[in-house]
């Protein structure tokens, strides 16, 4: 065991893992965190807590992770390179560990231009691949980037994101390989809709032996409506929503589109379970957390395994 987190235990014992996602509130409400968390309790193996996603100011990811720990849930601390330099990152990592957080997800982060403070100064001192190497150094060498020995070692299970649908496609598997070299233990992908491209990506990753070297979790986001599908296809850079899903949602009456979206997600999950090299799913039900139990139940992924 590298960190001994529940996610690590589930994955290393060969179970098909399930992670969820929780977006912190735009405010200081603990109740808002508790409400979202209550839907995820007992149905996922650990919960990603986003770090000011889309560059919109929200409650601190470290703080929300701690709230989850206190509720008996396991968080994955997301950390982006946009807002912190290497000093703040290492400091927050040490603090997060002290608070009982055991999984970290290293991300570049959306550009601040997209958020609610486009006037801000960004940092990008290190990039996501380099951040992975920092977390690994803290864990495996017990040292900071400066070479300073840590008084108490922070042992994290190290995650990263991968987007098989960004360009240039040929470089995407290489980028995954770099993250593995840097020290990543698990990877969660961007939401997958284009299953053909995904299969191709996984095939390439498998050929390179990458599926042996890290746990790859497929990103799933249920489509709530044809409007959402269209929006994602059009406005989210690096997201690929094929026409056949849009057509399929269009084919059912408005009231039933949400149910159809869930059906699509469940079909996708079932396919992921059969696909070699896919170690689990990362279910991002954006502002739809209360649907998570229903989706996982339908996909046959409940109850979650207990591994000691």
């Amino acid at each position: 065991m590298k960190a001994g987190s529940n996610l690590e235990k589930v994955l290393t014992s060969g179970h098909f893992a399930v992670t969820g996602e929780l977006g912190p509130p735009r405010g200081a409400s603990v109740e808002a965190v508790e409400k979202k968390a209550s839907y995820l309790k007992g149905v996922v193996d650990s919960i990603n807590v986003t770090d000011n996603q889309t560059s919109v100011v929200r409650m601190s990811s470290v703080a929300v992770c701690k709230l989850l720990v206190d509720m008996g849930l396991e968080p994955n601390l997301q950390m982006v390179c946009r807002d912190r330099n290497r000093i703040a990152m290492q400091s927050d990592l040490l603090g997060a560990y002290a608070l009982g957080i055991r999984n970290v997800l290293c991300l570049s982060g959306d550009h601040n231009k997209f958020g609610d403070h486009p006037q801000s100064k960004n940092v990008f001192d290190v990039d996501s691949v380099q951040l992975i190497s920092i977390v690994k150094m803290l864990r495996d060498e017990g040292k900071m980037l400066s070479g300073q020995e840590c008084e108490g070692v922070a042992k994290f299970f190290i995650g990263a994101a991968a987007n098989p649908f960004g360009d240039p496609f040929e470089f995407r598997v290489t980028r995954l390989a770099k993250k593995i070299d840097a020290g990543v233990d698990f990877v969660q992908t961007q939401c997958i809709y284009n299953m053909d491209k995904w299969r191709k990506y996984m095939h390439m990753a498998h050929e390179e032996g990458l599926t042996e070297k890290c746990y790859i979790m497929a990103g799933i986001t249920p489509l709530k409506s044809v409007g959402m599908a269209r929006y994602m296809a059009k406005f989210v850079p690096g997201l690929d929503v094929p026409d056949y899903y849009i057509e399929r949602l269009k084919g059912v009456e408005k009231k039933k589109q949400a149910a159809e979206g869930i059906k699509i997600a469940v079909e996708q999950i079932q396919e992921m379970r059969e696909m070699p090299g896919v170690a689990g799913i990362h279910l991002m039900a954006i502002e739809w957390e209360h649907k998570v139990p229903e989706i996982l139940e339908a996909a046959g992924l409940l109850p979650r395994p207990k591994v000691d």
Binding site: D110, K113, D127, V129, F171, P237, G238
Partner: peptide, 26 residues
Amino acid sequence: CSKSLMNGPCGGSANKQCEVSPEIDC
């Protein structure tokens, strides 16, 4: 690169354009 990345394109790179704006080459 809008994020000064040193290890390859971020997930937002699409059609040779930067996620920040279609006016910026990735």
